[in-house]
Simulated scan of single mutants.
Amino acid sequence: MSNQATINSGISSGDNSGDSPAISMVEAINLALHRAMLDDDDVILLGEDVATNGGVFRATVGLKEKFGVKRVIDTPLAENMIAGLAVGMAAQGLKPIAEIQFMGFIFPSMEHIVCHAARLRNRTRGRLSCPLVIRAPYGGGIHAPEHHSESTEALFAHIPGLRVVIPSSPQRAYGLLLAAIRNPDPVIFLEPKRIYRSQNQRVEDNAQALPLDTCFTLREGNDISLISWGAMIKETLEAADQLAEEGIHCEVIDVATISPLDRETILASVGKTGHCVIIHEAPLNGSVGSEIASLLASEALLDLRAPVARVGGYDTVMPYFRLEDQYMPQTDHIIDAVKRTLEFE
Score class of each variant (00 low, 15 high):
330 Q>F: 00
300 A>P: 02
315 D>E: 13
297 A>M: 14
328 M>I: 08
296 L>P: 03
334 I>F: 01
332 D>Q: 14
307 P>R: 13
326 Q>D: 12
333 H>P: 00
296 L>T: 01
299 E>T: 08
296 L>H: 02
301 L>P: 03
330 Q>T: 00
318 M>R: 07
305 R>C: 13
311 V>H: 01
321 F>H: 13
312 G>H: 02
313 G>C: 09
295 L>N: 04
301 L>E: 09
309 A>L: 06
305 R>G: 09
327 Y>T: 01
299 E>K: 12
315 D>N: 14
334 I>V: 12
306 A>W: 05
323 L>W: 05
327 Y>R: 02
297 A>P: 10
325 D>F: 08
326 Q>K: 11
311 V>T: 02
311 V>R: 01
304 L>H: 05
301 L>V: 09
307 P>G: 13
323 L>C: 06
333 H>Y: 01
319 P>L: 12
326 Q>G: 11
297 A>N: 09
306 A>H: 05
303 D>M: 11
312 G>M: 05
319 P>D: 10
300 A>Q: 03
314 Y>G: 06
315 D>K: 09
317 V>K: 10
309 A>S: 13
335 I>P: 00
314 Y>L: 12
295 L>E: 07
324 E>S: 03
335 I>R: 00
310 R>S: 09
309 A>N: 05
311 V>S: 02
333 H>Q: 01
327 Y>A: 06
318 M>D: 09
326 Q>Y: 11
326 Q>R: 10
310 R>G: 07
312 G>R: 01
302 L>Y: 15
311 V>G: 01
314 Y>Q: 14
329 P>V: 02
319 P>C: 07
297 A>V: 07
315 D>R: 05
315 D>M: 14
298 S>R: 15
303 D>C: 15
299 E>G: 11
329 P>L: 04
316 T>N: 12
329 P>Q: 05
333 H>S: 01
321 F>C: 08
310 R>H: 08
301 L>R: 08
295 L>A: 06
328 M>S: 01
334 I>H: 00
326 Q>A: 11
311 V>L: 04
304 L>A: 14
301 L>K: 12
316 T>E: 15
332 D>V: 05
311 V>D: 00
318 M>G: 08
318 M>W: 14
302 L>A: 13
324 E>Y: 04
334 I>W: 00
300 A>V: 03
306 A>K: 02
320 Y>W: 13
311 V>A: 02
